[in-house]
């Protein structure tokens, strides 16, 4: 479960302070598939960055599985992200010098899993997203859709408590987007908690809950 309490985030440029999140209270239960939607600049990505511990809120609290992340040091947060969270970025964010399987192996190795086991798990993860024929290809040798699937494989290989996805279909054609969303719905069906930021209604509707955000505030929550 993840919960935010009066979450605020402002950006300061010189003497000008721009509030982006203006006090967000949100609760997402384990196993939910939540889409955060809103117009450009509404604060949806900023909210996701706070919840996924990639950024520091200006004030407020984020509690994940009962742990108040506000009290964690940067090193503890990195370890927490490694163990409990998974990320799918808009632009795939694969490491260009690593093959698909090595990209997936890397966080597993960091988790202390032995080398042989990491390659086994990474292989299974890539099979799950349909990349069994591309294990040893570099990101530059994969299409956009394949890269995003590799990115999902990396995000789920260590079985995270929460999977965050930031506009995962924004750079993809329709067919690839549908493939990606199919993977997400399958993962959700298997019990994976997913928090996805999107501006595409068609894909947002695949989630069981839509959190609508505007001007840094939640303006509505729609349940399936």
């Amino acid at each position: 479960m993840i919960e935010t309490k009066n979450l605020k985030r402002s950006f300061i440029d010189g003497e000008v302070e721009t509030p982006v999140l203006k006090g967000v209270d949100l609760k997402i239960e384990t196993g939910e598939f939540v889409a955060i939607m809103g117009r450009s600049g509404a604060g949806k990505s900023t909210l996701m960055y706070q919840m996924s511990l990639l950024d520091e809120p200006s004030s407020g609290e984020i509690i994940i599985d009962g742990q108040n992340t506000h009290l964690m040091s940067p090193v503890q947060k990195t370890k927490f992200r490694l163990e409990k969270l998974g990320y799918v970025f808009q632009d795939y964010a694969l490491i260009p010098e690593l093959t698909a399987v090595e990209n997936v192996v890397l966080p597993l190795l960091m988790n202390g899993v032995n080398k042989k086991e990491t390659y086994k798990i990474a292989g299974e993860s890539l099979v799950k997203v349909g990349l069994e024929k591309h294990l040893h290809q570099l990101p530059s040798q994969l299409s956009g859709g394949e890269q995003q699937r590799a990115s999902i494989a990396r995000a789920i290989a260590h079985q995270p408590n929460i999977l965050f996805a930031d506009e995962p279909t924004a750079n993809l054609d329709n067919e690839s987007s549908r493939t990606i969303m199919k993977i997400f719905t399958d993962l959700h069906r298997d019990g994976q908690t997913i928090i996805m930021v999107t501006h595409e209604e068609e894909y947002g509707r695949l989630a069981e809950k839509i959190v609508r955000i505007d001007d840094g505030r939640i303006i509505g929550i729609e349940k399936d």
């Binding site: 990195t78 490694l82 969270l85 990320y87 970025f89 490491i95 260009p96 890397l106 990396r154």
Partner: peptide, 15 residues
């Protein structure tokens, strides 16, 4: 950017 991603997915700065 990739250093940021590595940190983002949990790879320690030291590594």
């Amino acid at each position: 950017k990739f250093i940021g991603i590595l940190k983002g997915i949990g790879i320690s700065g030291e590594a």
